[in-house]
Amino acid sequence: MVARGLSVLFCGINPSLMSAATGHHFARPGNRFWPVLHLAGFTPRQLRPAEQEELLAYGLGITNLVARATARADELGAAELQEGGLLLAEKAEQLRPRRLAIVGVTAYRTAFGEKKARIGPQERRIGGTRVWVLPNPSGLNAHWTARTMAEEYARLRATVTEDPSR
């Protein structure tokens, strides 16, 4: 679910088994992506996974680093994530979103060889696109609450609002 010139292209790690079965991103019950997106102010109401196409109207899109569905993201190997990083870079260069937001710092570190990366804006740019790393909204990520995740997502949203040209 992508288009050229998006404000933000969100990139999940890979589809859950539920997402693969339904064809909807972040479809697993307990995944906090949709509530967090709303709490951060990206959407005027909380969308359901089946409403993912509505994101395009808000200048948002979703893709994944790796296409292979798994029960848990930690089932992916480093080579898969690195290949996914190459493919994502190609996609971002073609689509030219203003921000590329990768949800999952560990996956980002592996995919792009940035061992010390932290949540937030990265020095890396892909083409002219600024890269931002966000907390993984999986229910398995107990270090973050929906509220604290929404604060990080809102930081990203503010940069798009403050700098609409890029």
Rank of each mutant, 00 (worst) to 15 (best):
H38F: 10
P121S: 10
P29V: 02
V105H: 04
L95W: 06
A150M: 06
L140C: 05
S7V: 00
A89F: 01
R45W: 13
Y58E: 15
N136Q: 12
A142M: 13
R109E: 04
I13E: 05
A142H: 15
E151H: 08
T159A: 04
M149R: 01
T148K: 14
K116A: 08
P49Y: 11
R4C: 03
R28M: 15
R155D: 07
V131L: 09
V160R: 01
T159P: 00
L17M: 07
P35M: 15
T110G: 04
T70I: 00
A27V: 04
Q52L: 04
G61A: 06
R109M: 06
L6C: 09
E51N: 09
D163P: 00
R68C: 08
V36F: 07
R125C: 03
A3C: 03
E53P: 00
F42N: 12
R147Q: 14
A78G: 09
I13D: 03
L140Y: 07
M18A: 11
I126A: 07
E162H: 11
R147M: 02
R72E: 09
G120P: 00
L47H: 13
V131G: 03
A73R: 08
A71K: 14
G12N: 13
A20N: 11
H25Y: 15
T43F: 11
N141D: 15
G5W: 08
R147D: 13
T129E: 11
A154G: 02
A78C: 02
A20Y: 00
A150T: 03
Q82A: 08
R166D: 14
W34A: 01
H24P: 01
G127R: 12
F112E: 01
R68G: 10
A111S: 00
W144T: 04
T70R: 15
T145Y: 04
R68M: 10
A89C: 00
E151G: 03
R32G: 05
V133H: 06
L60K: 08
L56V: 11
L6Q: 12
A78Y: 07
G127P: 07
A101W: 01
N64C: 05
L87G: 08
A142K: 15
K91N: 06
F112V: 02
L9N: 03
K115M: 10
V66M: 01
F26N: 09
I13N: 02
Q82F: 00
R157L: 10
E151S: 06
A73H: 10
M149S: 05
N136D: 15
A158Q: 15
A40C: 07
A73C: 04
T70V: 13
M1W: 00
W132S: 03
G127E: 12
K91S: 11
S19M: 09
T63I: 01
Y58G: 04
H38L: 01
Q94D: 12
G127V: 06
